[in-house]
Amino acid sequence: MQTKRMTFSSRWLPYALLAPQVLITVVFFIWPASQALWQSMLRQDAFGLRTTFVWFRNFERLFDNPLYLASMKTTAIFAISTTLLAMSLSLLFAVMVNRMLRSREWYTTFLVWPYAVAPAIAGVLWWFMFNTSVGIVPYMLEGFGYDWNHRLDGNDAMILVVLAAAWKQISYNFLFFLAGLQSIPQSLLEAAAIDGAGRTKRFWTIVFPLLSPTTFFLMVVNVVYAMFDTFGVIHATTEGGPAQATNILVYNVFRDGFVNGNLGASAAQSVVLMGIVVVLTVVQFRFIERRVNY
């Protein structure tokens, strides 16, 4: 890793400059993470009196637990649906905005602000619209003969949290897609147009392939978002229900650790999640390196 050609020299100053950040990182990140690793191999007895070292038994138990496996499946469904919905809508909006001239700024302004809404608030907003007694959407759905009830029906609850999570993420994706679209050379599009390719054809044969770095990057970011940042959406609305239908992994760690007080199991789940984050981060950085040489 480079520095400047010419640098300052001091025995102690660089360490002093780094001290605050390194200290906070060690105390609040690395130490707790290593604690999680250690605790994931311990088990307490029912009264919390004795703690025994059990190697990987907590993990074995975890992967034998049908509830945990169900939670993994729920997380996968939730993350994939949220990513697909948020990305396809924002790509559509970005392509449409990109062909505007005068109104571009206006549409952009109207599309970016949901980024500022906290996931928990996004959850409450959608939860209110879908509320079975006062909500506006169930009322309209009734007109179509559909009886909406996210308190009893797991699918309805899943649709609700996916909508809320995707709604908030559209602005982020939109901005990145728009930036990606604007960096596509106009000359390519003009050449294709002269050769007689229509808009649709130009999009699928030129624009979409050239956007693929952006698309791939956003895919990773959206999956990370859906897996980790959506705790608020779940906790403020369905609380994992009904019958675990929206119980994603992050919510499950919280519940086992703080509500059920099962530290070993919660720590083991933390370790599994850390593994997932590490894999996703590595994938993302691999890709960024490739993009630099592009």
């Binding site: 650790g257 530290l263 933390s270």
Partner: peptide, 12 residues
């Protein structure tokens, strides 16, 4: 720190 969001290490 990039790899350790609060959500994955809440209890410790």
């Amino acid at each position: 720190t990039l790899m350790l969001p609060v959500e994955v290490r809440i209890v410790p």
